[in-house]
Simulated scan of single mutants.
Amino acid sequence: MIRGLYTAAAGMVTQQRRHDTATQNIANLNTTGYKQVDSVSHAFPDVLISAISHGTSEKIGRLNTGVFAEQSISQYVQGDLLESGKPADFAISSDLQVADPATGENIQFDGSGKYINPDGEVIYRPQAFFTVQDNEGNNLYTRNGSFTVNTAGDVLSAGGFRVLDATGNPMVLTGSLDNLKVDGQGNLIDPATGLAAGPKLGISIVTRPQQLVRDGNGVFHAEEPEVAEVRYAEAADNMQVRQGYLENSNVDAAQVTVDMNAAYRAYEANQKVIQFYDSTLQKAVTEIGRV
């Protein structure tokens, strides 16, 4: 009976975390570059129950010991691009491909940007990010291209981080912001000649985006860049920088609303199970205990 209390309590904690994740997604429906978070739940290991009588053991069956929220996974699929018309606003449009080692053909990813090969290995679509740097010199990655330029010409992200160029150095602009022109590869263009003349936006390609860690404020970091296979974008990469656009959140409002309501109902169901066990224990103490 006590085990049942623990199982129901574990279910309540898991559903609370699912509900919190869904409300976080809903709160960021209009946050530029926000990536939806999905909560993944797993069951604790089953327990084999046996009855021992007169020195013999008879298997009764398996008992599930509850569930727990194992991890939260970010969905990096691209959000809609919305035109802002501001010269310092940028969005990345990308369709990066990965070749299947077995066939040599491009992998066909599903709508969530992942592919499961015949061996059960999950492969995620590579993603492109703007590269920014915090005050400690750590590289961070974001899809929020709403940049500003201070009086010294430093290009800053929405979170106040310095935007890096393709050589890993902070970008500094010398001309008027009104004349800022950037081509599809992120090169700064001289308005007079129409040719590349200046630093190039530092677009990082993360081959294994599942290795990124969410930091908040729309940025991610890679604890081990070598494992995440982070590199700067090359001309052959199928991606384009769109000036005067911003990437909207990729949250599926209908789906996260369904998830939130499902988590709430499951939380209520576990709560009623605990109330049942509580009333049963109360009877055991107050009534059976008097006999």
Rank of each mutant, 00 (worst) to 15 (best):
Thr32Trp: 01
Thr32Ser: 04
Thr32Gln: 02
Gly33Gln: 05
Val37Leu: 08
Val37Asp: 05
Asp38Gln: 14
Asp38Thr: 07
Val40His: 15
Ser41Trp: 02
Ser41Ile: 07
Ser41Gln: 13
Ala43Trp: 00
Phe44Gly: 06
Pro45Asp: 15
Pro45Gly: 15
Pro45Cys: 15
Asp46Ser: 11
Leu48Cys: 03
Ile49Gln: 15
Ser50Pro: 00
Ser50Val: 05
Ser50Phe: 03
Ala51Thr: 08
Ala51Asn: 13
Ile52Gln: 14
Ile52Val: 14
Ile52Glu: 08
His54Trp: 00
His54Asn: 14
Gly55Trp: 11
Gly55Asp: 15
Gly55Arg: 11
Gly55Ala: 09
Gly55Ile: 11
Gly55Ser: 15
Thr56Arg: 15
Ser57Ile: 03
Ser57Ala: 13
Ser57Val: 06
Ser57Arg: 10
Ser57Thr: 11
Glu58Phe: 05
Lys59Ala: 12
Lys59Trp: 01
Ile60His: 10
Gly61Cys: 11
Arg62Ser: 13
Leu63Ile: 12
Asn64Met: 03
Thr65Trp: 04
Gly66Pro: 10
Gly66Arg: 04
Gly66Thr: 10
Val67Met: 15
Val67Pro: 06
Ala69Ser: 13
Glu70Arg: 13
Gln71Pro: 03
Gln71Ala: 13
Gln71His: 08
Gln71Asn: 13
Ser72Val: 07
Ser72Phe: 07
Ser72Asn: 12
Ser74Gln: 07
Ser74Asn: 02
Ser74Asp: 10
Gln75Ala: 09
Val77Tyr: 00
Gln78Ile: 12
Gly79Ala: 08
Asp80Ile: 03
Asp80Thr: 07
Leu81Gln: 15
Leu81Trp: 13
Leu82Tyr: 04
Glu83His: 12
Glu83Arg: 12
Glu83Gln: 14
Gly85His: 12
Gly85Phe: 09
Lys86Trp: 03
Pro87Thr: 10
Pro87Cys: 05
Asp89Leu: 05
Asp89Ile: 01
Phe90Ile: 06
Ala91Pro: 02
Ser93Tyr: 00
Ser94Arg: 00
Ser94Pro: 03
Ser94Trp: 02
Asp95Ser: 05
Asp95Trp: 01
Gln97Ser: 08
Val98Ala: 05
Ala99Gln: 09
Ala99Ser: 08
Asp100Asn: 14
Pro101Cys: 11
Pro101Leu: 13
Ala102Leu: 15
Ala102His: 09
Thr103Gly: 03
Thr103Asp: 01
Ile107Cys: 02
Gln108Asp: 11
Phe109Glu: 01
Phe109Asn: 01
Asp110Leu: 14
Asp110Tyr: 10
Gly111Leu: 06
Ser112Trp: 01
Lys114Asn: 11
Tyr115Ala: 11
Tyr115Glu: 10
Pro118Val: 07
Glu121Asn: 10
Glu121Pro: 00
Val122Cys: 08
Val122Met: 09
Ile123Ser: 04
Tyr124Thr: 04
Arg125Asp: 03
Arg125Tyr: 04
Pro126Leu: 06
Pro126Ile: 03
Gln127Pro: 02
Gln127Ala: 06
